[in-house]
Design a protein around this nucleic acid. Structure first.
Length: 416
DNA sequence: TCTGGGGTCCTAGGACCC
DNA sequence: TCTGGGGTCCTAGGACCC
């Protein structure tokens, strides 16, 4: 039978696991179901099993430190605790919430399980991190079959089949949006969360998408939303009501044109099933701000450790890097980066540390440091032909960047 | 009581080459 | 000696996302 004429050429799904990290923890600690639980912080908050077999949990009120909320259960969200919120602030809102440490190994395990379950039904999958994926359903058998008088019945049936398969493989629920493109599907998957299915066509744009706040669009962040609000633009429909020249005038040629397309629900991006990484990095925020001079030895050890971890990541994944960079965050949250492109790609810790050390010399280190990071970019594989021409001679450091004498030797003469 | 760690992409200026 | 334009690479910062 011929597909209904209103069905779009592409059918793209966005699948988002519901409160993923928190839900994985509830599998392990089912007695916490229904309670306000917050995931975040460093190791020390693991539950303790008492002699009688009962478990004792840490409470959010007892937390001290610089951690943030990674995820929270829906009960915790009802108390105003959301992702990326500082744990100390979260403790003020929900002092009796249970605090669990993040256990990435476990989340990665369930991530592999749910993705494999989806792949058995629809193999064209784009990874968007540990808890979400895009799926191109265009060629899945039965997707365009109407059910009764519903031309979208086939799509809804496939969505339910995928959700059942994920639940069976992991014990976890997810939400799925199916629309003609990635942009709309990403929005749609959120509309019926948790455990929801939302199928939209272009005909639903005005009623379902236009009333939404601009922040619901993937790619409109806090800065763009604030600027839009200042211009009297609150909803996606408000954007669609503006002309292309108006948007370009206020947001630039590229972003303005994208806003125009996005507000009209247009997006031609394909589902990309494989991509090479652009960079690999390691960074750490200190428990307290450290000073280059007073805490020199400690900083040196941390610096060396970051380089060793990065070297381990590179070799484990089979990459060489020709551009090594550092990231510094000072007290007050001012962030600075420096990088250096080498003649030849490297991967070992000593070479990374040397290059990163050269970057470090270009930064004024008189302020206390909150974070230190090391990054490897310009990645290649060991047998690849060299890309680019040899790096030119580095220009001398600008006068304003010339470090103090003691900074010059900072972190050096500490052997790996 | 401020704000983790791991990423991608874009912009913009200067160097350098043709 | 002056005047170009195009293209790529490098670097720094910033917005945004999970």
């Amino acid at each position: 039978m011929q597909a209904a004429p209103s069905l779009p050429e592409r059918l793209i799904a966005h699948l988002d696991m519901d409160a993923f990290y928190a839900s994985v923890e509830l599998l392990r600690y089912p007695e916490l179901k229904g309670r306000a639980v917050v995931i975040g912080g460093r190791r020390e908050h693991a539950p303790r099993t008492l002699a009688d077999g009962t478990r004792e949990y840490s409470l959010l009120r007892d937390y001290t430190g610089r951690g943030v909320v990674t995820t929270s259960t829906y009960a915790a969200r009802d108390l105003g605790v959301f992702s990326a919120m500082g744990l100390m602030k979260a403790a003020l809102r929900a002092p009796d919430a249970i605090l669990l440490p993040t256990d990435f190994d476990s989340y990665r395990h369930y991530s592999r399980l749910f993705k494999a379950a989806v792949a058995e039904i629809a193999p064209v999958i784009e990874d968007r991190g540990i808890d979400e994926i895009y799926i191109d359903l265009t060629d899945v058998p039965g997707i365009r079959e109407p059910v009764g008088h519903d031309p979208l019945g086939g799509a809804k049936a496939v969505a339910r089949e995928i959700k059942n398969s994920v639940l069976k493989a992991t014990g976890l629920t997810c939400s799925i949006g199916i629309t003609p493109n990635k942009l709309l599907s990403k929005i749609a998957s959120e509309l019926e969360k948790p455990d929801g299915v939302t199928v939209l066509t272009m005909e639903d744009l005005e009623t379902r998408i236009w009333p939404l706040a601009v922040r619901k669009v993937n790619g409109i962040g806090p800065k763009a939303a604030a600027k839009l609000a200042a211009l009297g633009v609150e909803t996606v429909g408000d954007i669609a009501g503006k002309t292309l020249p108006w948007l370009v005038e206020n947001f630039g040629k590229s972003y303005g044109a994208w806003l125009h397309e996005a507000s009209h629900g247009r997006d031609r991006r394909p589902v990309v099933t494989y991509s090479e990484p652009v960079s690999i990095s390691r960074e750490t925020t200190f428990e307290r701000d450290l000073h280059a001079k007073q805490d020199r030895a400690l900083l040196g050890r941390i610096f060396t450790q970051l380089c060793e971890q990065l070297a381990g990541d590179l070799s484990r994944k089979g990459y060489l890097s020709r551009t090594i960079g550092i990231k510094l965050r000072f007290e007050g949250f001012v962030t600075v980066t420096r990088d250096l492109t080498l003649d030849l790609p490297i991967a070992d810790a000593a070479a990374i540390r040397h290059a990163a050390g050269l970057c470090l010399k270009r930064v004024d280190l008189s302020k206390r440091l909150r974070l230190l990071g090391v990054r490897a970019g310009n990645l290649s594989h060991p047998g690849d032909a060299l890309r680019g021409r040899p790096a030119r001679k580095a220009k001398p450091a600008a006068a304003s960047e010339t470090p103090e004498a003691e900074s010059l030797s900072l972190f050096e003469d500490l052997p790996l």
